[in-house]
Structures are given as C-alpha cells and as structure tokens.
C-alpha cells in the first residue's frame, strides 16, 4: 500500500514538472493556460480601443462648424463597430464562459451586421440559449427579418425555462414573422433595381425564404403566439413604458382580429381638434380615407 501510494505521488509530481515543458515544446495550446483575468484584460483592451476611438470621433465632431464637414468626418472617421466586434467575438468563441456573453451583448448594443452579427448569433445559439441574461437582448430581434433570427428565437423558445426569456422570445418571434410578411409584400411590389439592392443587403437566402412565405399561415401562427403571450406571459414587463407583455401582445392580437383587411372597422368616437364630438359611424355610406397623422 505504502509503496504504491508513494509511487503514484511521485508519478504525479513528475507529470506536474513535465507538463509546462510539454506545452512549451508543442504547439501554442490555444490559450488554454491563459487565466480568466488575462482573457478579460484582452477583452477590455479591444473594447476600450473602440471606446477611445469613438470618443476621439465625437470630440472632433463637436469642433466642426459646417454640415458638410460633419458629414465628411462621419463618412471618413466613424469607428467601425463591426471590425471591432470580429476580434472580440473570436476571443469570445475561444473563451465563451469568460467573455462570451459580454461580447454578444457588445455586438448587439453596437448593432453590428454582416459576419459579426452572424458570429454573435452563433455564439448565442451555442452557449447561451438557456441563460436568463439573454431576455432583454431578445427585443433586438423583434424587427429583424433574416432567417437566422427566426431560427435563434425558435431555439430559445424550445430551450429556455426562464419565464421572462420565454415571453420576450415569443413576442420577438411573432413580430419577426410579421416583419417578414410585410417585407415580402414590399419586395414583391418593388422595382427591379430596388430588388437587387434588397437582395444584396439581406442576402439571397433570406430573400428566397421570404418570397415563399404563406402569409395566411403566418398570420394564424402570430395570432396563436400573441394569444399565448397574453395567457401565459402577460405580467412580464415590456420595453414600452409601464406596459406589460400582455398589454402590447393584446393590442397586436386586437389588430390581427379587428383591423385586418376585410374586417368591420371598430368605432371611433371622440373630440375633434376644436372640441366637438363625432363618430366614425357618422360617415357610413361614404368611402373613408382614415389617416393617423401628426405634423412632425
């Protein structure tokens, strides 16, 4: 017994001695022996560099006198968040548990597009689907129409067990679907040159998936998503003032059920600009152009 134990201890000590040697002789070990604080320091260096560039940009901007100078300064010197996000996300990919979430958040806050956005979504999908910290980030996806956004939200809805995350994911997914339908309509009606521009911006893949949409089916899906939000996630706060998710999804549900083409217009009753009361139904028998407007 004693002999064996001594042998094991000796072997262990030998390994400890040998290990640094081995890694020193071999390939650099992908940053394995870097400490979390070193990783954080690297992260801060990259993000901090962006911040100081942004500050320099803003300071110079404040000094400029004419719109033309400002426009030129903006075009030439506005710091490119996408270029910063790529190394940030590459570092995050190597060390997702240390700086992964921060990097994704950074990319979202700075509204990066293209390959950086794709990398951020991949990181999110791979490591953070069930992380409750992603809840508020999901609002960003409500008005994105690309197919990657849809798959990510579906995955969150399947994976997360956090109520707030689930509620926001359902809402963002429904709005994403509605955005796809209205974009598809807009795309179909567009001129050829506009179509080419849209395809360049959103990518052929997204355009193809959009033009195949069955809008009636999407509408039914949205209706059941909004109804589910009202029923199951109604109390969760929304991003809009004191409104809950139930309030905003309820209005979307009302719009789908009562304000679609083919529905009887709901009554409107109230005071005009000068204080006398009138109703929409007073004008029955006439064709009405109803304009929600503001002089701004």
């Amino acid at each position: 017994m004693n002999g064996t134990l001594r042998f094991v201890t000796a072997l262990f000590a030998l390994l400890l001695l040998a290990a640094p040697n081995l890694s020193a002789q071999g390939e650099p070990a992908g940053g394995d022996e870097v400490t979390p604080s070193e990783i954080r320091a690297r992260y801060e260096a990259i993000a901090g560099d962006f911040e100081s560039r942004m500050k320099a940009f803003q300071d110079a901007f404040a000094e400029l006198k004419t719109d033309e100078e400002r426009r030129q300064h903006y075009e030439e010197n506005y710091p490119d968040a996408g270029a910063i996000a790529l190394p940030l996300l590459a570092l995050a990919k190597e060390h997702p548990q240390v700086v992964g979430f921060e990097a994704v958040e950074w990319a979202m806050d700075n509204r990066v597009g293209g390959p950086a956005r794709k990398a951020a979504l991949e990181l999110l999908a791979e490591h953070f689907l069930s992380d409750p910290r992603i809840a508020d980030m999901l609002w960003n996806f409500a008005y994105d129409i690309d197919a990657n956004t849809g798959s990510l939200l579906r995955a969150v809805m399947k994976t997360s067990d956090d109520e707030k995350t689930l509620g926001i994911a359902h809402y963002a997914f429904a709005k994403h679907l509605q955005g796809q339908v209205s974009f598809a309509g807009y795309y179909t009606d567009a001129e050829e040159t506009e179509k080419t521009q849209m395809a360049e911006y959103f990518g052929e893949e997204t355009i193809a998936s959009l033009t195949d949409l069955d809008s009636a089916a999407v509408e039914r899906e949205c209706e059941s998503l909004f109804a589910k939000i009202v029923e199951s996630y109604g109390e969760i706060p929304s991003m809009r003032g004191s409104d809950t998710l139930g309030d905003i999804a309820g209005r979307d549900l009302f719009e789908l059920r009562n304000l679609s083409v083919g529905k009887q217009a709901p009554e409107i009753e109230g005071e005009d600009l000068f204080g006398s009361t009138f109703k929409l139904s007073d004008y029955r028998g006439k064709v009405i152009f109803l304009d929600f407007w503001g002089d701004w």
């Binding site: 679609s260 217009a265 409107i268 005071e271 009405i288 109803l290 503001g294 701004w296």
Partner: peptide, 29 residues
C-alpha cells in the same frame, strides 16, 4: 390627453392609413 384611439388601433408609425368602404369594412391599409 385623450389618447386611446391610436393605441387601440395599435399604431406604431405615422402616418398609418386605412381605406374603409361605404359599409364600414376595412379594405386597404
């Protein structure tokens, strides 16, 4: 303010417009 109408009609961008026929049915948005 009176509010309410734009909120009930779920208006999130201005202008939002509807064309309603003589029977009161929403026909175009």
């Amino acid at each position: 303010t009176p509010g309410g109408i734009a909120e009930q009609w779920n208006v999130s961008g201005w202008p939002t417009t509807y064309v309603i026929d003589h029977k009161g049915v929403i026909r175009f948005k």
